[in-house]
Amino acid sequence: MQDSLLRHCGYRDYFLFLFGINTGLRISDILPLRVKDVRDKTQIIVTEKKTKKVRVIYINEILKVEIDKYTTSMGFDEFLFASRRGNSHITPTQAYRRLQKAAEIAGIENTATHSLRKTFGYHHYKKHGDLAVLQKFFSHASTSITKQYIGITQDEIKKNSTDFDLQNQEVQNNGKNTRAWTR
């Protein structure tokens, strides 16, 4: 996806993708950001459009490097994701279209702007295994909602189904290995 964005959509769209998967913010909270909100910062303070909650998002080292690279020739008050028309940022619809184009070229199905947030959650869980942190991050009522949201439940079902068979299974029976069978 990243390669597809870089080659076919441009650096702005690549950076949007990278920013989204590294922060977990909603597209509605990403697009209005300006250079001054992220340049030379270790964290981003955002009032979420949907929930009105103030959030502190920490910027990892990879994203810091990309922010510096991306904003190097930009003015402090410029939008990070400026529209080519006037003094505004791109719309969520424009962001969706760019991601869709890259996904189509890369052969990826079911991609939307919200996929960035879900990708962040999925990989955060795979690395840290802490659903409670993600539940709080996403403001979900339960960890089961968070698991469903990031697609872990389906992954676990698939893994447990494909890694499971009963053919020629050895079981412990009073300290002796015996073969298991069904009746």
Rank of each mutant, 00 (worst) to 15 (best):
V46P: 05
T47C: 14
T47P: 10
E48M: 09
E48A: 09
E48S: 13
K49A: 15
K50S: 04
T51Q: 05
K52E: 12
K52I: 06
K53I: 10
K53C: 07
K53M: 10
K53W: 04
V54I: 15
V56I: 15
I57S: 08
I57C: 04
I57W: 05
Y58W: 12
Y58R: 12
I59F: 04
E61G: 11
I62K: 15
I62T: 14
L63T: 08
K64E: 13
K64V: 09
V65I: 14
E66A: 05
E66Q: 11
K69W: 06
K69M: 07
K69H: 08
Y70G: 03
Y70T: 01
T72F: 11
S73C: 09
S73T: 13
M74D: 08
M74G: 07
G75Q: 13
G75T: 11
G75L: 15
F76Y: 15
F76E: 13
D77P: 15
D77T: 12
E78F: 12
E78V: 08
F79D: 04
F79L: 09
F79A: 11
F79W: 08
F81K: 01
F81V: 01
F81N: 01
F81H: 02
A82E: 10
S83I: 07
R84Q: 11
R84V: 07
G86T: 04
G86V: 02
G86Y: 03
S88N: 12
S88M: 08
S88T: 11
H89D: 05
H89M: 05
H89S: 09
H89A: 06
I90V: 04
T91R: 02
T91W: 05
T91M: 04
T91S: 10
P92S: 06
P92F: 09
T93K: 14
Q94W: 05
Q94T: 11
A95R: 09
Y96A: 07
Y96H: 11
R97L: 08
R97F: 08
R97V: 02
R97D: 03
R98Y: 02
R98H: 06
L99F: 01
Q100C: 11
Q100H: 15
Q100S: 12
K101C: 04
A102G: 01
A102D: 00
A102R: 00
A103K: 00
E104A: 05
E104N: 08
I105C: 02
A106G: 00
A106W: 00
A106Q: 00
A106C: 00
G107Y: 00
G107C: 00
I108H: 01
E109K: 13
E109Y: 09
N110H: 09
T111E: 06
T111K: 10
T111F: 09
T111I: 13
A112V: 12
A112I: 08
A112C: 11
